[in-house]
C-alpha cells in the first residue's frame, strides 16, 4: 500500500524553482528519507504536504485521496503530523500543554460547555491526558512534564516536538532533520524511537536528515534532491554512492 504519493509536484518562488516537478511514492509502514544539500528543496516539500505552501503544479495523494486543496488545519485530522527544522513549539506553555495541543485535532470543543467546565469537558480532558501519558512514557519525558518549553535544552525540545506530533496519532509522520542539535546519546535514542514508531506504532515516517549514519540505520528508502529535482532514489547504500549525489554534496 502507498501512504503518500507526490505527482509532478512543483513550487516556484518567483525565479527560484524550490521544488521542480518531483514524483515519489512513500510505502506504508516504511521510513522514507529525503536527503540533499542545503537549499535542495526538502523543507519546501514538507511545507507543501502540510499545505502551508500552495503548489505551482502537481498533486499530493494521501491514502488514495487527493489532499492538494485541503486547508492546512485539516491536515492533522487527516492523519499527517510533522516537526519543524527550527523547532516550532509553544514556548510559553508547559510540555504537557504542548503535548495536549497535539490532541487538538481530536478535541472537538463546545465553547459554552468549556466556559462552565461541564463534567463532559473534564472527562475528555482526562482521556486526552491518558493518550498523552503514553507518549510521555514512550519518549521518557516524565521529568519535564510540567516545565515551560523556554526552560528546556535544545535536545529535549526536539524530543518534545516529536512527542507533540505523535500525540496527534498520525498515520504519516514528517520529521524535518530530527537529529540536528542532538548529542550522540540522544541520536542513538532517536534511532530506536524511529524504528519503534514504524514497527510498533505502525506509523509511516517521511524524514529529512543530514546525518548519513542515522539515515543508513533507519531508512527503507532514500530520495536525493538537488535544486528541487530528484537526482537519485533507492536503498540508502545505493543512493549514498550514486555519482550524482556525491557530486551534489561536493558542490558540483
Amino acid at each position: 500500500m502507498i501512504a503518500l504519493e507526490a505527482r509532478e509536484l512543483a513550487l516556484h518562488f518567483g525565479g527560484i524553482k524550490a521544488v521542480d516537478g518531483i514524483s515519489f511514492q512513500v510505502p506504508e509502514r516504511s521510513v522514507f528519507t529525503l536527503i540533499g544539500p542545503n537549499g535542495a528543496g526538502k523543507t519546501t516539500v514538507f511545507n507543501l504536504i502540510s499545505r502551508i505552501y500552495e503548489p505551482t503544479a502537481g498533486r499530493l495523494i494521501f491514502e488514495g485521496r487527493d489532499i492538494t486543496t485541503v486547508p492546512p488545519h485539516d491536515i492533522a485530522r487527516r492523519g499527517i503530523a510533522r516537526t519543524f527544522q527550527n523547532i516550532e513549539l509553544f514556548e510559553n506553555a508547559t510540555v504537557l500543554q504542548n503535548l495536549l495541543l497535539g490532541r487538538h485535532a481530536h478535541a472537538a470543543g463546545n465553547v459554552v460547555a468549556e466556559l462552565m467546565f461541564l463534567p463532559g469537558v473534564r472527562r475528555r480532558e482526562i482521556a486526552h491526558r491518558e493518550a498523552v501519558e503514553r507518549v510521555i512514557d514512550f519518549l521518557n519525558l516524565e521529568p519535564h512534564r510540567d516545565t515551560l518549553i523556554s526552560g528546556l535544552s535544545y535536545g529535549v525540545r526536539k524530543i518534545v516536538e516529536l512527542g507533540r506530533a505523535l500525540c496527534t496519532e498520525p498515520r504519516l509522520l514528517l520529521l524535518d532533520e530530527p537529529s540536528s542539535g542532538l548529542n550522540p546519546e540522544e541520536t542513538d535514542d532517536l534511532v530506536f524511537w524511529i524504528q519503534d514508531i514504524r514497527d510498533i506504532l505502525g506509523i509511516t515516517v517521511l524524514m529529512v536528515e543530514h546525518d548519513m549514519g542515522l539515515v543508513s540505520k533507519v531508512s527503507d528508502h532514500v530520495l536525493a534532491l538537488n535544486h528541487g529535482q530528484v537526482i537519485a532514489s533507492g536503498t540508502p547504500g545505493a543512493v549514498k554512492s550514486d555519482p550524482q549525489v556525491v557530486k551534489a554534496y561536493l558542490g558540483g
Binding site: I52, F84, A93, G102, L115
Partner: peptide, 25 residues
C-alpha cells in the same frame, strides 16, 4: 475554565506559533 480547556490551549498555540498551531489542527 476556558484556559484549561482545548479552546484556551488553542489560543496559546496561535499566540506562540501560528504555523505550528495550524499543523496541530
Amino acid at each position: 475554565n476556558i484556559m484549561r480547556a482545548p479552546t484556551g490551549r488553542a489560543l496559546i498555540a496561535l499566540r506562540d506559533s501560528e504555523v505550528a498551531a495550524q499543523s496541530m489542527g
